[in-house]
């Protein structure tokens, strides 16, 4: 087994072991302290429900309508102009989906990986892209919503700019390394 997958497997058990044991030796009443902290879990989770529902409804209606394919068709000429391999175009739906919905993007990526094979160029590109950008739009809506922020100012611009760079760099590096 690879070191990295082992590390991923051990991370949570290690934290759950190390933190309470260390704290116990520092004379922290571990169980009571845990309960005290956990109390806020419910409040915060419930508070983000309106933002989750609002975002998920809009995103789901958009995606299920087939709008993603239309958007892909609109964007196709731009990608061709930049001189990208037509193969790479199959990645566009994933690139659009990534900032919107985590589970949606994972679905698209999984489908691409199975369709083209995990060790194909598209499979590797989809994997890299899935691992390297985040659901920016969704995260902003939920995080800001949870504390009542209404004006995001330049937050969305910064996040989406990073996503675009992440996409372009992913294409470049995967071509370079595996191309």
């Amino acid at each position: 087994m690879n070191i990295i997958t082992e590390l991923a497997k051990w991370a949570i058990p290690f934290i759950l072991f190390f933190v309470p044991v260390y704290a116990y030796f520092r004379k922290v009443p571990v169980y009571e302290t845990f309960v005290e902290g956990a109390e806020n879990g419910f409040k915060t989770a419930v508070k983000i429900i309106p933002f989750l529902v609002g975002m998920l409804v809009s995103i789901r209606v958009f995606v299920d309508s087939g709008a993603l394919e239309i958007l892909t068709d609109i964007l196709r000429p731009f990608f061709l102009v930049v001189g990208l391999d037509p193969d790479i175009l199959t990645i566009i739906p994933l690139a659009i989906m990534r900032p919107l919905s985590g589970s949606g993007a994972l679905g698209v990526a999984t489908q691409l990986i199975h369709q083209f094979g995990p060790d194909s160029f598209i499979g590797r590109l989809a994997s890299t892209l899935q691992g390297s950008t985040d659901t920016t739009f969704f995260v902003l809506a939920v995080y800001f919503g949870s504390v009542g922020i209404k004006k995001y100012r330049y937050a969305l611009k910064v996040g989406l700019l990073a996503d675009v760079v992440g996409l372009l760099v992913s294409i470049w590096i995967v071509t370079k390394v595996f191309g």
Binding site: V19, V28, F34, E36, G37, N40, G41
Partner: peptide
């Protein structure tokens, strides 16, 4: 998940 991690974090804070 939220309760679990906030609880662990509270322990980590106190320690």
């Amino acid at each position: 998940v939220m309760s679990l991690w906030l609880g662990i974090m509270h322990i980590a804070e106190k320690a």
